[in-house]
Design a protein around this nucleic acid. Structure first.
Length: 289
DNA sequence: ATTATGGGTTTGATTACATCA
DNA sequence: GCTGATGTAATCAAACCCATA
């Protein structure tokens, strides 16, 4: 799966505050969806006190929109595997890399010429089911890739997160590894990249959740204040309501007569800071604004 | 300063299962 | 429907790292 670093930034938040006690996300994933098909879906239920304004924050790999309470991120797209040209282009890199046996890295595996011969021999046996060879004799001896091998694998992974059989074989030859080992390395790399990205998404959503919870609490308080105000001066508020308009996307209430937002109306909400009007995607859930 | 060691982390490998041609 | 190839998810365990005594 090709997960790009900037995916984490490609998140839009929408916050709606309503008086109903339930909030439904129309674009939430199908409940039958298996985790493997939508692994990045996460959902948080924010505070919901007094059965009034409630908040749901979700993450889906599909684009959310409309009235959904969702955070969306474009994650885990499958990357098309192109023909092997890119890999072959790297052959010269590997050749050079294989000459650089510095031995300065503590964990780096020293590869003797005998080992290389052995691996080369094993490369001829590249079938998925026929790589069992030496395992049974020596027990589970774990291979440690050299720094150069790891570097080339990483380089290849940057270009293709999955490899065709021919690409695997070519790369295995260049690395003096078995095809199966290259295959396993890519499997693990994909899995761990995905896990890492999920953790990043999770942290991001936690922060979003905290932000939105605070905002929810603030708006809840604001509603209570307005209700109290309405009770004390019902007739005056009724008259003022006719002069108010509301932004449909972010529900900022403004006066009609003043384009600058200035008003001498003492009951307008504009005196409170509107937290979402900045460029920070984390604290700017209302993309519509 | 050196060494042993225990715990945490990284990573190569295996297994089970799903999907698709 | 069966089969083989290949993918993901979960897991194991060797190798490594590092703080501590």
């Amino acid at each position: 799966m090709g997960i790009h670093d900037d995916d984490a930034c490609n998140i839009g938040l929408v916050l709606r505050l309503g008086l109903s006690s339930t909030v439904e996300s129309p674009s939430k994933p199908d409940s039958n969806q298996t985790p493997s098909k939508n692994p990045s879906f996460l959902k948080f239920e924010a505070t919901n006190f007094d059965d009034e304004p409630s908040l749901t924050l979700g993450l889906s790999s599909s684009g959310g929109g409309g009235d959904s309470y969702q955070v969306t991120t474009a994650a885990t797209q499958k990357v098309d595997v192109k023909p092997a040209g890119d890999l072959y282009r790297q052959a010269s890199i590997v050749s050079a890399v294989s000459l650089l046996s510095s031995g300065k890295v503590k964990r780096e595996r020293e590869v003797s010429s005998e080992e290389l011969m052995e691996v080369e021999k094993n490369n001829n046996n590249s079938s998925r089911l026929s790589d069992e060879d030496e395992e049974g004799v020596n027990g589970r001896k774990k291979l440690r890739l050299s720094k150069q091998q790891s570097a080339l694998l990483e380089e290849s992974f940057k270009q293709h997160s999955t490899l065709s059989p021919k690409q695997k074989q070519a790369l295995a030859r260049q690395l003096n590894l078995k095809t199966r080992q290259v295959e396993v390395w890519f499997q693990n790399r994909r899995a761990r990249t995905k896990l890492k990205q999920t953790e990043v998404d999770c942290e991001l959503l936690k922060k979003c959740c905290e932000t939105l919870t605070d905002e929810n609490r603030r708006l809840q308080k604001e509603i209570q204040e307005l209700k109290a105000l309405k009770l004390t001066q019902p007739f005056y508020m009724h008259m003022q309501a006719a002069t108010l308009t509301m932004c449909p996307s972010c529900e900022i209430t403004t006066g009609v007569g003043d384009a600058n937002g200035n008003s001498n109306n003492p009951f307008l909400m504009a005196s409170k800071p509107h937290h979402f009007h900045n460029n920070n995607p984390l604290s700017n859930p209302s993309a519509a604004c």
